[in-house]
């Protein structure tokens, strides 16, 4: 009588290939699946990472699907699972379930000028999209990248940011909320950088990923630039537990962030009293 259905909670054993402690709180991981099986993700999607005996946590994939064979995460230490992950090293195993949700609609973005804005941890899923875009550079219009971090010590992907900034067809700006000794870059909120970017609103898609407070102010700036609300994309952070639209933890109004999100257009969520 038992329905022979596969459990949506099935976990794959992933192997850690490389780790690097990036900041006090963030650690980088490169992971592969058995037989170097492709994860098959889109930029902006997430997976559930399992540490047996500790639990599961939703983690954004930071690498682009254009890079095959393995995939990457940058994990902030915030709870039991992520704390345990920080103690792990090369050769250790972690459970992988996913990928889940709707990522950035890369096909829809083709042909548009892109204004990609990342704050803090939001730069991690955004990294996947930026790498994807740069790997397919000719398919997109103008590329502007704005990166905001709290302090110079918390800047993520520092090496790559330098590399991207040097590219002729990319404009990148980096700012920190509070400077520090030796910091020669910009200091101030990321919202201040937006007005200075020349945009053709109808041709522009803005992608914003960051903490809840950032959305409020950044989106205001984008609307001031008359970018249409369905050309503003955001990625919402919620506590996904099942990843398959059942457990209820990640719900924003009627949307399950893990299924219909985490990427939404601002048009979809702007009337939702619970979203931002």
């Amino acid at each position: 009588m038992t329905a022979l259905l596969e459990s949506p909670y099935e976990v794959m054993a992933g192997k850690i290939l490389k780790t690097r402690q990036w900041t006090d709180l963030e650690k980088y991981f490169e992971v592969e699946l058995p037989g170097r099986k492709d994860l098959g993700h889109e930029p902006g999607q997430f997976v559930m990472i399992s540490v047996p005996g500790v639990g599961e946590a939703p983690i954004s994939v930071s690498s682009s699907p254009t890079r095959k064979g393995s995939f990457e995460f940058v994990i902030r230490k915030a709870g039991g699972v992520t704390g345990m992950l920080h103690t792990m090293k090369e050769g250790d195993s972690v459970g992988i379930r996913g990928p889940f949700g709707h990522g950035f609609p890369t096909q829809r973005l083709e042909g548009y000028d892109l204004l990609m804005i990342g704050g803090g941890c939001g730069n991690i899923p955004l990294h996947s999209l930026i790498t994807f875009v740069l790997d397919n550079r000719s398919k997109f219009g103008k590329v502007d990248i704005l990166v905001g971090c709290k302090t110079p010590e918390t800047v993520l992907f520092a090496e790559e940011l330098k590399d991207w900034a040097k590219r002729p067809n990319v404009r990148l700006d980096l700012t920190v909320d509070r400077g520090g000794p030796g910091w020669q870059g910009k200091v101030g909120l990321i919202t201040k950088l937006i007005p200075g970017i020349p945009t053709d609103p109808q041709r522009t898609c803005a992608v914003v990923v960051g903490p809840p407070i950032m959305y409020k102010f950044v989106i205001q700036e984008l609307l001031k630039k008359e970018i249409p609300d369905d050309q503003i994309l955001v990625s919402m952070e919620r506590h996904m537990k099942c990843g398959v639209g059942k457990c209820g933890h990640c719900q924003i109004a009627q949307y399950y962030c893990c299924r219909e999100g985490p990427v939404f257009t601002f048009k979809e969520i702007r009337h939702f009293y619970e979203a931002i």
Binding site: S7, Y9, E10, V11, A13, S50, P52, G53, S93, G95
Partner: peptide, 16 residues
């Protein structure tokens, strides 16, 4: 119970 696991391997088995 939806799964059992063994940390030593490590391995997860779904339980339906």
């Amino acid at each position: 119970t939806i799964q059992t696991f063994d940390r030593a391997v490590p391995r997860w088995n779904s339980v339906v």
